[in-house]
Design a protein around this nucleic acid. Structure first.
Length: 868
RNA sequence: GCCCGUGUGGUGGAAUGGUAGACGCGGCGGACUCAAAAUCCGCUACCGAAAGGUGUGGGGGUUCAAGUCCCUCCACGGGCACCA
């Protein structure tokens, strides 16, 4: 082979085909009733300034699916937009004096350019940013509809307050109890805030998870736990020696069966009873205060010791009026779950046991495992400080003895529901959810203004829809602490839309999770003058394949599921579940290096010597810091721009899909990138060699083997891409490329072989086109095709060529492989037995022993079993 | 603490209960070259000269047959809510 072939130059080829797709509007989608649609969506990016490798991986996967489905005949919607509100823009304003708006739109422009250099098959005509007034006006309109539908509530809630910056802090802005910028000790403050009533849908959001069969089980489980349904009993206990006006204490329990194991009551520091008792008890007040302080940091809670304070109040056991138990305030009781009060049963709850052991409270076992060994083990564990929370039989429980816990639960609930305390039932069955309503107020500038007006006379008045959008003012300053909207000189001063009197705008803005809770629906009709055009949504929704990071497994996905329900309830959408299939991809990770003193070093500065890793410039010894998620602070980021510039977008895309399964973390390595680049060059050479062969050759028997390989590859790659197994699809493509390479080595070939070879190369190009679209287009042109790959249908496997006529079967003796045989497909025992028994390897292994069993797994294996 | 994952060659990883290690990277050997790069070809789990044996984190079990199913232990990773 001495064909002189120019190197494939991605720097000229990639922009050329990107222009071709743009000029031909190849990816602009429109509704075509009757034609099957496919909606592919990747979680849209926050415009931080530059794309990172995680974006490259995410958008490459989505693009492969979009291009594959498109070629397979679907009408594909594959849009892109920007999740553009949020704190980083305000931080840039405060730190560098840039306006959030210009910062954001400049970042969008830069990132759009980067995404375009990746050659993604996106419909850019549908692009929007959530900070566009043309987007958020609909968000405001829908919020007003939600208000009318009773899905919005205003209530008081605790926030992290920075007393120096006069601002509310997000949890991630609180570092070790202090404001991240001011360093001031963070206070807990009560503010009136807006809430969306997601809890109205708790049961539905939970049950509907069962229908999401194409979601990862892990994500469904996380959502199930987050919603946290429990069935229990509300029980009212009479109390004595309590502050005036307090005569009873209502608790929630999921274990009323263990009521005879009660040894104390515990209430939250914020419980009204605790507050009342604190009034004349400074020590208790101080204890409650310390509990509240601890509440800010998750880490503190986890490591905190169980602490309690005896209030002196005494409660009467609901099943025995002579039985009195003490009431404590305890640091592990949360006010916002259940009633903020519990009864403690130390023997069967670990937290209660820890608490009881610390304060010398009685421990009574009331559930015993039925198995004797397990029962004595449980007793030993209890003595050693481990509570038993399993099933068994009731003991030490008077009338309940002998029942199992489920029966005991029912018996207690039935009895107490009949009994009266102060004229009302003592107990009531109650289903409880952990899920809380969604607080959506943020005291910040760069977000969607909440469209309500506070009037001194009329109270809260929604902004009339004709006045929407409520626009963010551009002329704001960030020189003063606090919310720029609140101290803007004029913006908030308006007249009441109802009475015309003096009124003030709401200066809070929405949580940015709202923006991303309905963008998928907006993409169906991004220019409509309603939030969602019903016809467009009916055609495109739901999203057939949604792809993003596992970090959004709970909040974003749960909020989106709630939002589509709320939109359904208000007539904006016709369905409840927005994402039919979900895929969560792994992170991009890279090696890290540190100096002995712990400073991070760029991987490019680390060199390996016999003594170990050293700094290339200084010779300082280095330690490997492990393989970690790419981050600037660890100096292990790889810039997609540099990769695309030096190797091309196709190489970067190919690398991201190769080897590692898409749901796992992928390690970026230079060697891997170089390997992918070499493969693009190899494909280019092979295609050019094949293009020189006679295009008019006709198939005959001599090309059969290669044709079978081609068609089997089509079948396998199609199946792999349908199931998002990109790494396997790529392995199949290497095999086909190797087969083509071998065929090209031959010095002479028959017309049938030429025809098969050209078919194999055409197939190869079409199959790798979703992964490396630019190279595919260029190859396709070289091969003499007039129509671009983007307009060429996906190849079909010919069943006659994928079917096997002969198979290799393994021959085992007692489960150990001894030989293999080539036989016609479907060979039966009658044919196989004489063949196999005649094998020398078999008779040697049998060594004269009689055959007791002869097992045939058709077309796979023969196993001969003999006595040992 | 609880919950969920994951453990396979030097390495990333394949494998509907049916021939473990496909494919890639790396390594070794060879061809081409004055030479190098690039490219192409071959070999590459371990022990053994071979026959053969051993191998999917450890131990046990089910099965004609286990990386795959069950029990148990270990290691690593991730998530979380002290949730009554």
């Amino acid at each position: 082979m001495s064909v002189s072939i120019e190197r494939y130059n991605h720097r000229t080829v990639e922009p050329k085909w990107q222009a071709h797709w743009t000029d031909n509007k190849s990816f602009e989608a429109s509704e075509e009733p009757g034609r099957p649609k496919y909606y592919v969506l990747e979680m849209f990016p926050y415009p931080s300034g530059r794309i990172h490798m995680g974006h490259v991986r995410n958008y490459t996967m989505g693009d492969v699916i979009a291009r594959f489905r498109r070629a397979a005949g679907y009408n594909v919607l594959h849009p892109m937009g920007w999740d553009a509100f949020g704190m980083p823009a305000e931080n840039a304003a405060i730190e560098r004096g840039v306006h959030p708006k210009s910062w954001t739109y400049e970042n969008i422009a830069a990132m759009r350019k980067q995404l375009k250099s990746m050659g993604l098959s996106l419909d850019w005509s549908r692009e929007f940013a959530t900070c566009d007034p043309s987007y958020y006006r609909h968000e405001q309109a829908m919020f007003i509809d939600f208000m009318e539908k009773g899905l919005v509530e205003r209530k008081s809630s605790k926030v992290n307050w920075d007393p120096v910056d006069h601002t509310v802090l997000a949890n991630e802005q609180v570092i070790e109890g202090r404001g991240w910028r001011s360093g001031a000790l963070v206070e807990q403050r009560e503010l009136s805030q807006w809430f969306l009533k997601i809890t109205s849908y708790s049961q539905d959001l939970l049950e509907a998870l069962d229908g999401l069969g194409n979601w990862p089980e892990k994500v469904r489980l996380m959502q199930r736990n987050w919603i946290g349904r429990s069935e229990g009993l509300l029980v009212r206990w009479q109390i004595e020696r309590a502050p005036a006006g307090h005569t009873e204490l209502e608790i929630y329990t999921t274990r009323p069966d263990t009521l005879f194991g009660a040894s104390f009551m515990a209430i939250a520091a914020d419980h009204p009873l605790a507050k009342a008792a604190s009034e004349n008890n400074p020590e208790l007040a101080a204890f409650c205060e310390s509990c509240r302080r601890m509440g800010t940091s998750v880490a503190a809670i986890e490591t905190a010791e169980k602490m309690g304070f005896d209030t002196g109040i005494v409660a009467t056991h609901p099943l025995d009026p002579t039985w009195k138990v003490p009431v404590y305030v305890a640091n592990f009781i949360l006010m916002d779950y259940g009633t903020g009060a519990i009864f403690g049963c130390p023997a069967h709850d670990q937290r209660d046991l820890d608490f009881a052991r610390k304060y010398g409270l009685p421990v009574t076992q009331v559930v015993k495992p039925t198995d004797a060994a397990a029962a004595s083990q449980a007793e030993a564990d209890l003595a050693a400080g481990t509570a038993y929370d399993g099933d068994g039989v009731m003991v030490n429980s008077r009338v309940l003895d002998g029942l199992d816990p489920a029966e005991a639960f029912k018996a207690v609930a039935d009895k107490l529901e009949q009994e009266r305390l102060a004229g009302r039932p003592v107990a009531a069955r109650k289903v409880n959810f952990r899920l809380r309503d969604w607080g959506v107020s943020r005291q910040r500038y760069w977000g969607c203004p909440i469209p309500v007006i506070h009037c001194e006379t009329c109270g809260i008045v929604p902004v009339p829809k004709k006045d929407l959008p409520v626009r963010l003012p551009d002329d704001v300053t960030f020189d003063k602490p606090g919310n720029p909207l609140a101290h803007h000189p004029t913006w908030k001063h308006v007249n009441c839309p109802q009475c015309g009197g003096k009124a003030a705008r709401e200066t809070d803005t929405f949580d940015t999770f709202i923006d991303s809770s309905w963008y998928y629906a907006r993409f169906c009709s991004p220019h409509a003058d309603v939030p969602v055009d019903a016809g467009a949504a009916k055609y495109w929704m739901g999203v057939d394949q949604y792809i993003g990071g596992i970090e959004h497994a709970i909040l974003h996905l749960l909020y989106s599921r709630f939002y589509s329900r709320a939109m359904h309830a208000t007539g904006h959408l016709h369905m409840d579940e927005p994402f039919a299939s979900l895929f969560t991809q792994g992170m991009v990770v890279h090696e890290t290096y540190k100096t002995v003193s712990g400073e991070w070093v760029l991987p490019s500065d680390a060199v390996k010597q016999e003594s170990g890793w050293v700094h290339a410039a200084t010779g300082e010894p280095l330690v490997t810091g492990g393989i970690e998620k790419m981050s600037k602070s660890k100096k292990n980021v790889v810039d997609p721009d540099i990769i695309i510039e030096s190797y091309g977008a196709d190489t970067a895309r190919w690398f991201m899909l190769s080897d590692t399964p898409p749901e796992r973390d992928i390690e970026w390595t230079d060697a891997g990138a170089v390997g992918a680049w070499k493969f693009t060059q190899r494909l280019w050479r092979m295609v050019n060699e094949a293009a020189a062969l006679d295009a008019g050759a006709v198939h005959d028997q001599s090309g059969l083997a290669l044709r079978q390989t081609s068609h089997r590859t089509v079948a396998a790659v199609t199946d792999d891409l349908m199931n998002l197994r990109f790494n396997r699809a790529i392995a199949r493509l290497y095999e086909l490329a190797n087969a083509v390479g071998t065929a090209l080595q031959k010095s002479s070939r028959s017309p049938g072989e030429i025809a098969a070879l050209r078919e194999a190369v055409d197939t190869l190009v079409l199959l790798f086109a979703p992964m490396m679209p630019h190279l595919a287009e260029e190859c396709w042109k070289v091969l003499g095709h007039a129509v671009a790959v983007v307009d060429t249908p996906w190849p079909k496997a010919d069943p006659a060529l994928t079917a096997l006529t002969e198979v290799t079967m393994a021959v085992q003796v007692n489960g150990k492989r001894r030989d293999e045989i080539r036989v016609p497909k479907g060979a039966t025992r009658d044919v196989l037995e004489p063949m196999v028994m005649a094998l020398e390897s078999v008779s040697r292994a049998l060594d004269g022993k009689p055959v007791s069993k002869f097992i045939v797994v058709p077309d796979r294996i023969v196993n001969i079993v003999c006595a040992n």
